[in-house]
Amino acid sequence: MSEEYVVIAEQTTKEYRRGSEIIIAVRDINLKIKKGEFFVIIGPSGSGKSTLLNVLSGLDTPTTGRIILDGLDTGMIDESMFPKIRRERVGFVFQNFNLIDELTAIENVEAPLWPTSLSSKIIEERALTLLRHVDLIERKDHRPKELSGGEQQRVAIARALINNPKVVFADEPTGNLDSKTGEDIVRLLRKLNKEQGTTIIVVTHDQSLIKYADRVAYLKDGRITEITKGKSISD
């Protein structure tokens, strides 16, 4: 039943052409990620993690196979529909935080909803609620440069959640943080996953994240070698 799953990958392969050479970044991926799951994809550098994230999130199309994202086959959707899908169903958390330097924390959180028909008041209320959730309400008027790495990532998490997405894709969310701050960020993601029921898919090389996952997929040379249960630690 596809309704139980928020992301399904079927026989998915992604190839790149580099000059005359064809590079297979990920191959024969079969995955079913359940709604509300905290799913971690782990693998060493160059194993195809980011490519897999791009493909699963609909940022890139697979060369063969198909991806079903919240019931929609990404290969069958018109290109012009993707912004709407991203705005309504998907959130992203980046390794480099990717906050806009000229905007304050609250403006960064609000930004995904600016081009929508929601009123500014509703957008602000949502942003304030999320900033409270990530414990940054006191810092709402600070610009990214005035925030620590951990605080910036918390703003980025709030931004990823402002559209109430079905699924949040996090690309190495702890990659630019020290281990203690990284742990705090994963705990926060886990907490939001538990409280709000948002599916979270984390791509990382950091083994310490495994204990928070419901399930872990191990990626090596573009293939999933194993899928195991995580320890599902909540805090």
């Binding site: 940022l59 912004p83 709407k84 899908i85 991203r86 705005r87 309504e88 998907v90 992203f92 980046f94 990717n98 806009i100 930004a111 995904p112 600016w114 081009p115 931004r159 559209n163």
Partner: peptide, 16 residues
């Protein structure tokens, strides 16, 4: 450039 790529990930259209 990076801001635009990020905003596109967040659902902004080319027109926005």
């Amino acid at each position: 450039k990076t801001q635009v790529a990020t905003l596109r990930c967040l659902g902004w259209t080319s027109s926005d």
